[in-house]
Design a protein around this nucleic acid. Structure first.
Length: 283
DNA sequence: ATGTGTTCCTGTCCGC
DNA sequence: TGCGGACAGGAACACA
């Protein structure tokens, strides 16, 4: 499930449970996810206070009192399940570990955070906080979509001369961090740009449009994900409510929702991944 | 330097 | 109900 809005939703869900509290016990139930877990992971986590829980791209970063930062990536199927938290109240009652529960963190106040990941494309690591920006997984990332570094001039410069399809370019985390397959489809649909158009051939005026559209789509999705947090008990890791607002993604064969457009949403495959688009209004 | 295809792993859904 | 195949939100890596 996780693109930037889903990761941000998960982070917000974890905030009241983790930030400011100490990890009392860490149960590392297997030695690896996508890569081996860090050495002595449990010992390095136990007793550490989570000073701050932040996000960079699709990574959740927990700055610890030990001057290390816990890095979490959810991959395709990773979830952070919360138990022992009710509205404004915590308890120590937890269900037995389930299939694919790989890392279990018990907080001192009582709640438990369980990293569950069936496909195991997720990752966790520990790294000196001071060096986190140089972590191999973070070092090459492009700007945050909501940051000032992501702007019209930047995007025009990064796309110019590139022959790869615009869809692949927006999916490239070195160009802009946080977009995934769903939201790229949604952004290009709103922008009226064909996903297969070479990135460098998109008119600068259209590239300029992409910047606010990326922000709109992500912000709306975060807001919709947030709405599923209102009755938050367990971080269920599903899509929140934004899925009902997709205009292109997953809508093959349906009428294009663009006002005045008579087209039909098509599915095609680009570099091995599904692209949903309207050939009528995306040019 | 760029662009593309493959790969990791498990679960689910759809057609026969 | 079982079985095979396609497909799934990511992204590192190998290769042309």
């Amino acid at each position: 499930m996780p693109e930037l809005p889903e990761v941000e939703t998960v982070r917000r869900g974890l905030l009241p449970v983790m930030e400011g509290d100490v990890i009392r016990k860490a149960d590392i139930r297997r030695p690896d996810l996508r890569w081996p877990l860090p050495d002595r992971m449990a010992a390095r986590l136990e007793g550490a206070r989570v000073e701050r829980l932040r996000r960079r791209s699709k990574y959740i970063l927990g700055d610890l009192s030990t001057e290390e930062t816990l890095l979490v990536h959810l991959g395709m199927s990773g979830r952070m399940l919360i138990s022992g938290a009710q509205v404004g109240q915590f308890h120590h009652d937890h269900p037995a570990p389930a299939k694919h529960d790989h890392v279990v963190l018990d907080m001192a106040r009582g709640p438990r955070v369980t990293f569950n990941d069936a496909r195991r494309f997720g990752a966790m690591d520990l790294c000196a906080t001071e060096a986190i920006d140089r972590h191999p997984l973070l070092a090459g990332l492009g700007p945050e979509p909501f940051g000032n570094d992501f702007n019209e001039d930047y995007l025009v410069a990064r796309l110019s001369g590139r022959k790869m399809p615009i869809k692949a370019a927006l999916l490239d985390q070195r160009i802009v961090a946080g977009l995934g397959n769903i939201y790229v489809c949604e952004v290009l649909h709103r922008a009226g740009i064909s996903p297969s158009q070479p990135a460098g051939a998109v008119a600068p005026q259209q590239v300029a449009q992409l910047v606010p559209l990326v922000r709109d789509v992500l912000a709306e999705a975060i807001e919709a994900g947030g709405s599923s947090l209102r009755d938050y008990r367990q971080a269920d890791g599903d899509l929140g409510y934004f899925q009902h607002r997709f205009r292109a993604y997953g809508r093959e064969g349906e009428a294009c929702p663009t006002p005045g457009c008579t087209g039909t949403i098509q599915r095609m495959v680009q570099s091995g991944r599904s692209t949903f688009h309207c050939p009528e209004c995306q040019r």
